[in-house]
């Protein structure tokens, strides 16, 4: 059971400005069915360039509907310059706060607003385009977006970023990249957590190396993939080449390649040996894809 404020409940049960404005000046559409929430925002300007009317249609949970509703109320009467200054934090604050794991709803509201303004300013031609490099391909979240939620909400952990914009919540392959972004942006604010890395011994025997590779995959890699419905199997070790196979959600994930280099290889190098490199097992790759089709 979510602990929603009365204001959230009120906007959910009695949403304001539902629908689509006729002949809108700006239209913003964000989200998708697969992601679990989506918002279409439309607005009309008056002769002074202020938002005269704004309406929304939302697919999603109670807080997604409530944020959309309160957003339409907030932007009425604003100029577009004023409107684009509305942050996700402003939206959440207006609702008396949102549960941490629902903060992404407020970000979706702000994104839809931005998309609608952009649509208007481009003369109605431009649909919301993804700008900059996509970091999280599961949810299509760009570097720019992530940077913005980190700055606006003063975020210091990957979990927080996931709560605010979903990035990192799918296959988990981009969590390393998000962590680096947080470090760059927040610098000293990032809480240094003690890492209990096994002290790397000088020279490993073959058996020691194999055991350590298996242990690292079990303890460092698999749990992260597991939380997102994926899995990894150690197929073989040939010299410094570690052959693995992806299973479950990872098998069909667009980012598996990235996960392999950025997560699996990085962890193995950190915990076992700098010389290791990782390859995906060719046979298992076909096999697992076939299994999904069933």
């Amino acid at each position: 059971m979510w602990d929603y404020t009365d204001k959230v409940r009120d906007h959910f049960f009695n949403p304001q400005n539902v629908g689509e404005v006729e002949n809108p000046d700006g239209v913003g559409e964000v989200g998708s069915l697969a992601c679990g929430d989506a918002l279409k925002l439309t607005f009309k300007l008056d002769e002074n360039g202020r938002i005269k009317d704004a309406k929304f249609k939302t697919f999603g949970c109670a807080s997604a509907i409530a944020t959309s509703s309160v957003l339409t109320e907030m932007i009425k009467g604003l100029t577009l310059d004023e409107a684009v200054k509305v942050t996700n934090k402003d939206i959440a604050d207006r609702l008396g706060g949102l549960p941490e794991q629902k903060m992404h709803c407020s970000v979706m509201g702000r994104e839809a607003l931005e998309a609608a303004v952009e649509h208007y300013r481009s003369g109605g031609k431009k649909k919301h385009e993804i700008e900059g490099e996509v970091v999280c391909t599961c949810f299509g979240v760009t570097e720019k977006e992530i940077e913005r939620v980190i700055r606006e909400n003063d975020l210091t952990t990957v979990d927080e970023v996931t709560n605010y914009c979903k990035a990192g919540g799918g296959c988990g392959g981009c969590q390393g990249a998000i962590e680096k972004m947080i470090e760059t942006i927040q610098g000293d604010k990032v809480k240094a957590e003690p890492v209990s890395a096994p002290r790397r011994t000088g020279k490993l025997t073959n058996i020691q190396k194999m055991q350590l590779v298996q242990q690292t995959i079990n303890e460092q890699v698999r749990p992260a993939l597991r939380t997102h419905g994926g899995n990894i199997e150690l197929i073989d070790i040939d010299g410094n080449k570690v052959i693995v196979a992806f299973r479950g959600m990872c098998a069909q994930c667009q980012l598996a390649e990235f996960t392999m280099k950025d997560v699996v290889e990085a962890k193995l190098r950190e915990f076992v040996s700098e010389e290791l490199f990782v390859e995906e097992d060719a046979d298992s790759k076909d096999e697992s894809h076939e299994h999904i089709k069933k």
Partner: peptide
């Protein structure tokens, strides 16, 4: 519906 579970 939490932050980012792709699998409903």
């Amino acid at each position: 519906c939490t932050s980012g579970s792709l699998e409903p």
